[in-house]
Simulated scan of single mutants.
Amino acid sequence: MPWTNTKLEFGAVAKIFHWTSAAAFIAAYAVVYYVIWFMDDTAPEVLPVLNIHWVLDMIVGLSVLPRLLWRLVNVQPDQPHASHAEAWLAESAHWGLYGLLILMPLTGYIGTDAPTDFGLFALPSFRETALFGWMESQWGITWEGFEPPVDAVHHFVGKWIAWVVVALHVAAALFHHVVRRDGVLTRMLPGRSVA
């Protein structure tokens, strides 16, 4: 399998970005729903579990920029024959997914008042950063005024929008695979190559 994309398939780097983001995104959801359904979110033992969610969010968030750059410098595989409306919907859906992969980790990070511990190092909470200190001094923003709306956006998008966007993406991939049989899904599967 080539490292870069071709007109027929995605290369290994694009596949690694795709499946790493997908796995981290789904795992982050599994962890946070475990907390919601099975833990007392005010208990101190919830923080190490939430830290796993935050680490996974950071993996998603920090992989978006290199993933977008890789997409921009690489050839994209040809789209199957589709109407202009279908092509526009597919492109819009992909950019919507990228927006989601930016918005969720960003609002999660800037709305959390705890460091994210990666084991070898910790990422300070947004409240402890120079940027928030500058916002506080320049605009008179307090954490108590800043955090609730950011947290509300994160939870609303996570609860009501993210699932819909991801479900549509999965449904479209399955539609191409089962109904159209046009290879759209298989060209993104790990280890697959048309060569």
Rank of each mutant, 00 (worst) to 15 (best):
P115R: 06
A195N: 14
S193V: 06
T186E: 12
G191F: 04
L72H: 03
G140L: 05
N74E: 07
D41L: 09
E136N: 10
S83R: 10
L89E: 03
W143N: 02
S137Y: 02
L103F: 06
L47I: 13
A43D: 12
I161T: 10
N5E: 08
F118Q: 13
I26G: 11
K159G: 01
A14G: 05
V35W: 02
A122G: 04
V13Y: 01
W95N: 04
A122C: 08
S63G: 10
P2T: 11
P190T: 09
P44S: 05
A122R: 14
G11L: 07
V170P: 08
V184D: 11
V194G: 15
T186C: 04
V184W: 04
Y33M: 08
A12E: 00
F156M: 07
L50R: 14
L168F: 04
I16F: 11
H81M: 14
L168A: 03
T6E: 11
V157Q: 00
G119A: 09
L72A: 05
L120I: 14
V73S: 01
A90K: 06
V150W: 01
M58Q: 07
L123S: 10
W37K: 15
M58D: 04
Y98Q: 02
S63P: 07
E9Q: 15
T4R: 15
I26S: 02
F38H: 11
D151I: 05
H84M: 15
E91T: 11
A93H: 13
W95K: 06
A28C: 04
